[in-house]
């Protein structure tokens, strides 16, 4: 976040979301549980962090990415992040790449630009290259960004490329009606105003736009949304969302937001402490101390 008149807890939640989406450790999956005095906006700020974190890092884990890259053919579309830009290019396959594990290549991958023109530059940060998966659709005929200056200023990401691609990076499970109202919240960053939705790009909220997130009611069946799809993180807004769907979200990094006024907060607390008891170790996200009014528990769970 570069500059925004945001409360401290909102900025902290965004940092926490970013950590959730970016910190990947082999065999482990990140867990964060926080309790707040009131649920308002907390899930959306955390979701904004997940989306911006996923944008920079790419969300496929290393082994999946390498496996997918090794199966690519010349000319297949790939996504390539260069600085803040998100480029769609085609894959140029040369010599040693074929049937070789990519990590033996000395970190070299060659790329050709979208129209077949050879890009020809040696790229050492191969981890920024991702195949464009089925879930990521490139489209020119939809509204790309409603307030690009705000997205750029607030999150430091390229608004156009963010808008061109659709890929699920964050799932927020909670009260859909309440979340939909909050998505219209207007924020300011570097004197440019925009809405939470401009960053989160929730599919349900503006179905015709490209998307990065989904909001799903905790009463709906979210199984099909959570199983088998790699993405940045799941934000469970409220103890009922957490108690109902934490099992299904176990493969993804998740954040549980517990509103302390909720009658089921005590049951959620017990479930969180039970998770802590069977966890691998404590996690120490680089987000600083929880702000006033927020309690937090972080740990690494065994990846299953």
């Amino acid at each position: 976040m570069k500059s925004a008149p945001l409360p401290e807890w909102a900025r902290w939640l965004m940092e926490l979301g970013r950590w959730l989406a970016t910190d990947r450790q082999p065999g482990k999956v990140a867990r964060a549980a926080i309790s707040v005095p009131t649920r308002g906006y907390a899930a959306l700020f955390a979701g904004m962090g997940v989306v911006s974190g996923s944008y920079r890092s790419g969300v496929l884990n290393e082994s999946v990415r390498l496996r997918m890259l090794s199966r690519l053919n010349t000319g297949d579309p790939v996504r390539y992040c260069k600085g803040d830009e998100d480029l769609k290019v085609s894959y140029g396959k040369f010599g040693k790449i074929e049937k070789e594990p990519l990590f033996d290549l000395g970190d070299c991958v060659y790329l050709a630009e979208g129209n077949g023109k050879e890009y020809g530059r040696e790229v050492r940060q191969f981890h920024y290259i991702e195949p464009v998966g089925e879930e990521e659709k490139f489209s020119m005929d939809r509204p790309v960004c409603h307030s690009p200056d705000f997205v750029k200023a607030a999150m430091g990401i390229d608004p156009i490329s963010q808008g061109f691609f659709s890929r699920l990076e964050c799932v927020i499970i909670g009260n859909k009606t309440a979340l939909a109202e909050e998505l219209e919240l207007e924020l300011q960053a570097e004197r440019v105003s925009g809405k939470v939705q401009d960053v989160l790009r929730v599919h349900e909220h503006r179905p015709k736009d490209g998307y990065r997130s989904r909001t799903i009611s905790f009463q709906a069946d979210v199984r099909s949304e959570l199983v088998g799809k790699p993405f940045g993180g799941v934000v469970m807004d409220g103890s009922r969302s957490f108690l109902r769907w934490r099992g299904m979200a176990r493969r993804h990094p998740w954040l549980a937001i517990i509103d302390r006024t909720n009658p089921t907060a005590g049951a959620a607390r017990d479930a969180i402490l039970s998770g802590l008891a069977s966890s691998l170790e404590d996690a120490y996200p680089p987000v600083g101390d929880p702000p006033s009014g927020v309690e937090a528990i972080f740990y690494w769970d065994r990846k299953r």
Binding site: A33, S35, I258, R260, A265, G266, R269, I272, L273, L276, A277, S278, S279, L280, E281, D282, E295, A296, I297, R302
Partner: peptide, 17 residues
């Protein structure tokens, strides 16, 4: 909601370690 002492006691008896 998350009593620090309780969480600490749980960590001490973390079963996976």
């Amino acid at each position: 909601l998350f009593p620090p002492l309780e969480a600490e006691a749980i960590r001490r008896f973390r079963v996976s370690q």
